[in-house]
Amino acid sequence: MTSEVPRLVQHDTEYIEAVATALEAQAVQWWDGHGGVDVVLVLPHVIEYFRPRRVVLAWNRHFGWSMGVESLTSDAIDIITNLAAGPHPASGVCVDRAIDTFADLRDWAPPPDTSSLPFCPEIATEMPRTVRGRFTLHPS
């Protein structure tokens, strides 16, 4: 038995487009929902440690927004931290959280010995997790 991921509804697509516009996203990638990601916004910023991979915001309809970076493959992203803003924060709240989180991560670098320390104690408590997904057509 295969589980079908429910398609995004119209108000979700309008919400995503509003957030993408507010953040001046370079791309909106619609994912299939498997792996816990429905949409990825590619932003025109980099975190120095991960250069040249761009910053992304991943959205899950149940849990909300997470910040990460593009992965080394086109079918994945590396999630660094959750924005902790809920599943559907107003676009202004999402922008504020994204700016604050990016400011905290922009110049971050791991400590010399990462085996005993969390990834980024102020932001995240573990190493980035890779999420794989499949792109889908823009929901109608």
Results as ranks from 00 to 15, higher is better:
P6A: 13
P6T: 08
L8M: 10
T13S: 08
Y15H: 06
A18F: 04
T21H: 09
T21R: 07
L23C: 08
L23V: 04
V37N: 06
D38F: 09
V39W: 05
V39T: 15
V42C: 01
L43W: 01
P44K: 08
P44G: 14
V46T: 12
V46F: 02
I47Y: 13
E48V: 11
E48W: 13
P52R: 03
P52W: 05
R54V: 02
V56C: 15
L57K: 04
L57P: 07
A58F: 03
A58H: 04
A58D: 11
G64I: 09
W65R: 07
G68M: 12
V69Y: 03
S74T: 00
A76R: 00
D78Y: 00
I80A: 04
T81N: 13
A85P: 02
G86N: 11
V93I: 14
C94S: 13
V95M: 11
I99L: 12
D100H: 08
F102N: 01
A103V: 07
D104G: 15
W108G: 05
A109W: 08
S116I: 09
L117I: 05
C120W: 03
P121T: 02
I123H: 07
I123T: 12
A124M: 06
M127G: 07
P128L: 08
R129I: 10
R129G: 05
R129M: 09
R129W: 05
R132S: 10
G133F: 15
G133N: 09
R134I: 00
T136A: 03
L137W: 02
L137V: 13
P139T: 06
S140P: 13
